[in-house]
Design a protein around this nucleic acid. Structure first.
Lengths: 204, 204
DNA sequence: TTGCCATGTTAATCCGAGTAACATGAATGT
DNA sequence: ACATTCATGTTACTCGGATTAACATGGCAA
């Protein structure tokens, strides 16, 4: 029989269903009961696998972070170590990922909504970022910029990509610069920034 | 009598009550009925002034944007025209405003939650940003950087400030750089960026 | 004064989150 | 094979809060 009393993989089915509903509606305000229906179970079943709504949302969020880590790490491998190109590529991949998953933006980043997973735990959100840190570290070493902190630099570049992503998602870029290519903006932002860093180390 | 059947200024009272509840709880998930209670009216009264929950939330959001525009414009007036200092100060004021109103962050910026007001209408969110654009424009002229688009530059700097604000609000900065001063990070980010722009115009 | 109608009120309805009590069946030990 | 157990589902609630319907008040204009 195709439908047994026990689902078998309901937890994951619910996460997928929730993700689909979020993507389809463009907002995280779906009904648990709809996710349950889509997974073919009753409205109460989800509570066997998730404490409450936020718990399910967190699981979806983790999925997103895993996806982000994957593309980020893959990108780093495909670019020369220590190259500025690698840093820019990572920034753009980040921007694209965030923009393409804009419906999940609130889940992933919005203030205090969902608890950040603790470092070292399954949902640790840092792996994706550490590809970034590594690339910046390589670049610093290659360019003999011993004085600068790669972590600090990485966070600044990250903020740059993130800021553009948010403004893009919210339509602010389109409002002020209708013809702009956000990828280009990010690349030139990062380039100017890195130029500035290099300049500082040449003259200072 | 102090309490008449008709409130007299219920619309504004509700906006204020909602803003208070959001600030007190740190999240925009307050109950309409609580806002009504605080304004001293019944739970259904708000619907005479707001179509639905989102409509009230939008009104609160507009209030925030007005506040942002005020501090931004004031800051611009208090700094030398065309100075880099003015640009940095504006960036920091922006960062501070967003961080101090983090409970309102979702209302103001989060993806598609609330419609952006149309240009020229009462809730037009651009005035605050145009102080920024103006400062960047002054700087470009003063430094004879004729080739660069001030609007483009302004958006990039804005994204920088915004990105750091988001990462700060969400605790990401604290996670990766526990000792960091985000204001300093923003200032040095913007300085490196502007250094890079200048360098480009010197050499290119 | 008389009536209008914007603004309030009370009393529903509806929807969706979460819980309680019961049901099923896969796995496990005898 | 058979009985027991417990994770996982089910149905049938409760509850809060958004929204609406029908009625009430009173400021204001003709």
């Amino acid at each position: 029989m195709s439908k047994s009393y026990h689902h078998g993989d309901l937890r994951n089915a619910l996460i997928v269903a929730a993700a689909q509903l979020i993507e389809e509606s463009g907002s995280p305000d779906f009904a648990i009961s709809d996710a349950a229906k889509r997974a073919g179970v009753s409205a109460a079943a989800p509570y066997r696998h998730f404490k409450d709504r936020d718990d399910l949302l967190n699981a979806v969020s983790e999925l997103c972070f895993i996806g982000l880590a994957e593309v980020t790490e893959a990108t780093r491998k495909n670019h020369p170590e220590g190259s500025r190109e690698c840093i820019i590529a990572l920034s753009n991949v980040y921007l694209d990922y965030v923009a393409r998953h804009s419906a999940f933006y609130n889940l992933m980043w919005c203030a205090g909504k969902h608890s950040l997973a603790e470092p070292g735990t399954e949902g640790d959100q840092r792996p994706g970022f550490y590809a970034f840190v590594g690339a910046v570290q390589d670049w610093c070493q290659k360019h003999a910029l011993a004085g600068c902190d790669p972590l600090d630099l990485a966070v600044k570049l990250w903020a740059m990509a993130h800021g553009l992503a948010v403004l893009k998602i919210n339509g602010q870029i389109a409002m002020f610069l209708p013809a702009a290519d956000v990828d280009d903006m990010l690349a030139s932002s990062a380039n100017s920034f890195l130029d500035g860093i290099e300049k500082h180390h040449e003259t200072g």
